[in-house]
Nucleic acid binder design. Structure first.
Lengths: 140, 140
DNA sequence: GTTATTTTTGCAACTCCGTTGCAATCATGC
DNA sequence: GCATGATTGCAACGGAGTTGCAAAAATAAC
């Protein structure tokens, strides 16, 4: 578990620190987007929120994780899965499902982001498809 | 201009106040999503930010405007156009374009939100398709 | 293994935005 | 024009993003 995290950190030329390993472990175990506040709770306040903020920032800059937008108000990040490195270039065109009840955001790998063409003049750089609703776990 | 705003407020059974009229005017003139901070600037600090916050909230609850999510971090709202009231029910499935340079978010009416089916267990309630990039005005 | 160097961390501090309570002000119906 | 209820502005608080700086830790060099 932790081994995979350490491996990943080395691959991305990042120093092995407790915080980074724990955050990465958490992301590896829970395959979903997490926010800095959630990490703070989940990691039992073992790290300062600024450290977690910077850890996520570093991972994001290095391309280990990517931003996930939803309507929860706080920025979330998710691990880049295999899909991110597929074929020729790095891309993040996933469909994300945000549960308005448990506030969790997951990547829907089963569904491809539909392609669409914009009116002339717009230069698209990133596509986000967010679906809000109730997730599988929250249906009683 | 202001006449249309007053008309709309009456339609939605809202009291005619300076703030509401000005905000609505601004939304009518600039057909795009705006945030509370932007309104504060644009309306020359004539209203308290809390008032603007509550004005947007009220409009949203009454269905005059709807939330627009992008990665700017602050919540934005846009007028509900004719498309919102089309055919049988109220819906907000627009494609939104967020310019990362000028930070403006516009509704792309020309393009329909593609329909897609989710894995079983997910109950979708709202679809957001956000495209980040450079808008028409920002291309030099 | 010890030391030097560079990075990372924790703390303090600040800003911005969302949100609520409350008293004063305003819009509307009579 | 007055009464009533809604709306506003102010004060205030919390959460999240962000930066600077000194202490601590991780790697590199010996």
């Amino acid at each position: 578990m932790s081994a995979r995290a350490q491996e990943l950190l080395k691959d991305y030329q990042l120093r092995l620190t407790d915080c980074r390993i724990d955050v990465l472990d958490f992301l590896l175990v829970n395959q979903r987007a997490v926010s800095q506040p959630e990490l703070e709770q989940q990691l039992s306040d073992r790290f300062d929120r600024v450290t977690l903020y910077r850890t996520l920032n570093t991972f994001n800059e290095k391309g280990l994780i990517h931003e996930v937008t939803d309507t929860s108000g706080t920025m979330k990040f998710a691990l880049c899965g295999e899909a991110c490195h597929g074929s020729d270039h790095h891309h993040h065109e996933h469909v994300h499902f945000h549960c308005t009840q448990c506030n969790q955001t997951v990547c829907i790998n089963e569904v491809d982001v539909p392609h669409l063409s914009l009116p002339t003049g717009f230069k698209p750089q990133k596509f986000s498809f967010i679906i809000e609703g109730i997730c599988q776990s929250c249906q009683q």
